[in-house]
């Protein structure tokens, strides 16, 4: 492994904390793979070796797991993972057109990275936000109700190095490495940023309030 001393020290401390969360240490593998992505920007050969040593597995065993999951990247990833949902609901609501324009603007296709290393582009499966269709995700933060115009502005801003703000998420989207660290289970102090909900999330509650409905005894017949 080629990690320098301070990186390795931090990795070891983090790995120890991750292992401590589980009664059986192999369970630490998924978060640990997120952790190595937070250092290397992908699941590197070093990262695989590190996980293997930490958990008493072979490198082949670690690789077999890493390749099963789409969030683990086998090549150095862009600073921003940009996804356009093209599952049925979003696709029909305009996601296909958004994908086409975004892909043209970035000059790359699915699972490819721009030459400047800024954006890795991806066609997403349903991201559990269909009531906000069409949906995009940047580093797994929600960008709701997109149009071709807002989508192109978003990728232009990223390519220009400007901070971008999700609809439901932190004040600005952190880098791929930073969110990978969160996915390894380490808080980043951003939980209180952003709203509780978007408008569709509150649609039913609002409607119930307008009507004066409450789920009181017998009230919800």
């Amino acid at each position: 492994m080629t990690y320098d001393e301070s990186t390795l020290k931090q990795l070891l401390a983090d790995a120890e904390e991750i292992r401590g969360r589980y009664p059986v240490e192999r369970s630490a593998l998924l978060p640990m793979l997120h952790l190595v992505q937070s250092v290397d920007g992908y699941v590197s050969p070093d990262g695989i070796q590190f996980c293997a040593e930490q958990l008493g597995l072979t490198a082949a065993e670690v690789s077999a797991v890493a390749t099963f999951y789409t969030q683990y990247k086998r090549r150095p990833n862009g600073e921003f993972q940009v996804g356009v949902c093209t599952n049925t609901l979003c696709a029909v609501m305009g996601g296909d057109e958004i994908w086409k324009r975004v892909s043209e603007r970035c000059g790359v296709g699915h699972d490819e990275t721009t030459a400047d290393g800024k954006i890795s582009l991806e066609r997403l499966e349903c991201n559990a936000a269909c009531d906000f269709a069409p949906v995009m995700m940047v580093n797994w933060e929600f960008f709701d109700n997109m149009t071709p115009e807002t989508a192109l502005q978003l990728v232009d801003d990223i390519l220009d190095g400007k901070p971008v703000k999700p609809s439901r998420g932190p004040d600005a989207v952190p880098t791929f490495k930073e969110v990978s660290r969160v996915l390894a289970g380490f808080e980043d102090g951003r939980a209180d940023q952003g709203p509780a909900a978007g408008e569709p999330t509150l649609a039913g509650l609002q409607s119930a309030k307008d009507q004066g409905w409450k789920p009181a005894k017998g009230g919800a017949k």
């Binding site: 209180d192 509780a196 509650l205 009507q211 409905w213 919800a220 017949k221």
Partner: peptide, 19 residues
């Protein structure tokens, strides 16, 4: 007419509802 029954969703519109 069935009425809506916000139970789980009841406090989603409150300030910092996640706290």
């Amino acid at each position: 007419m069935t009425e809506l029954a916000p139970v789980l969703s009841a406090i989603w519109d409150q300030d910092k509802s996640w706290k």
